[in-house]
């Protein structure tokens, strides 16, 4: 009996899925299609809370580098820009309300999900084609990254304490979900979207060839590369939670409303510099 059970288990455990390299998230129901942003100029905000585990400026730098990793790929022309800070607590998409893409670290009892989850990304998309918001199925209209600072300690590459989980790895991975990519499957262990990490690895902070293939399949570079219209950013880079509604979250920086920042000017200036840097064209058509 024991031998039989053990043998059966060993045999069945050995059967694993043979899946493709990268995957794109699909719509629900019949005739699924891959989801993706319609426009290639996508905005996100950083929640003003930052992380309890590091200085706010460090959090901003790490977060913006994570997104920047996905836009420095020659075969794709997607651009993801940090456009400011927010104090909004909600994630997801509420029709008729302010909906921004954001990165938020939940601290001090605010993590409502399973305590074993380090981070997750909620992606909202058109499952059916209807109206102006959803001219086509699969259009992503909002994406938010939540990090579990409530149950985990995060660190950075340059943190001398070197304790906790690497925030850069974490956010680079979630940024892939933000763009509509799903986990890479077996045989591609170097990929950022790979579902496991070798011991001691930090490679998820950068993209490998498989990540790039996934990105370029979703957002192939066009010739010539269209310019992103300048993001109109409020002088203080701050979006209040009660800002006026806007139709969707893509290319949304033009709707950023000024408000009184709750943090000093340092982080704001840093975000501004990073945003301006990322606006620089990467290719000459």
């Amino acid at each position: 009996m024991r031998v039989h059970v053990g043998l059966t288990a060993a045999l069945t455990l050995g059967a694993s899925l043979d899946a493709s390299a990268y995957q794109r998230t699909q719509t629900r129901g019949d005739d699924p299609v891959s989801i993706g942003w319609t426009r290639r100029c996508i905005a996100y905000h950083l929640n003003e809370r930052g992380s309890d585990d590091m200085a706010f400026s460090t959090f901003q730098t790490v977060a913006n580098r994570a997104f920047a990793a996905w836009q420095n790929v020659d075969c794709s022309d997607v651009e993801v820009h940090a456009v400011g800070l927010t104090n909004a607590e909600t994630v997801g998409y509420t029709p008729g309300q302010t909906n921004i893409n954001q990165v938020i670290v939940r601290e001090r009892g605010d993590w409502i999900h399973s305590a074993d989850v380090l981070a997750l990304t909620t992606v909202t998309f058109c499952n059916e084609a209807s109206g102006t918001l959803c001219p086509t199925r699969g259009r992503i209209i909002d994406a938010d990254v939540e990090v579990n600072g409530d149950n985990f300690t995060f660190s950075t590459t340059n943190d001398p304490r070197r304790l906790g989980y690497d925030l850069g790895n974490t956010l680079t991975h979630e940024a892939g979900h933000f763009l509509g990519l799903d986990h890479t499957q077996e045989g591609h262990g170097e990929a950022t979207m790979y579902a496991t990490a070798p011991a001691g690895e930090r490679k998820k902070a950068s993209l490998d060839g498989d990540d790039q293939l996934g990105l370029c399949a979703a957002y192939p570079a066009r010739t010539p590369v269209p310019e992103c219209e300048p993001f109109e950013v409020a002088s203080d880079f701050y979006l209040k939670a009660d800002a006026e509604p806007k139709p969707d979250a893509e290319g949304c920086a033009c709707d950023v409303r000024p408000a009184v920042p709750r943090r000093g000017a340092g982080p704001v200036v840093l975000v501004a510099l990073l945003a301006l840097t990322s606006l620089r064209r990467r290719r000459v058509s």
Binding site: S155, D182, Q185, M193, G200
Partner: peptide, 20 residues
């Protein structure tokens, strides 16, 4: 599928050569 398991950084452990 769809899950990713991260590596805990604990001092020198992060300096180990990656293992497949």
């Amino acid at each position: 599928d769809g899950l990713t398991f991260p590596e805990l950084i604990v001092g020198e452990a992060n300096e180990r050569a990656p293992e497949r």
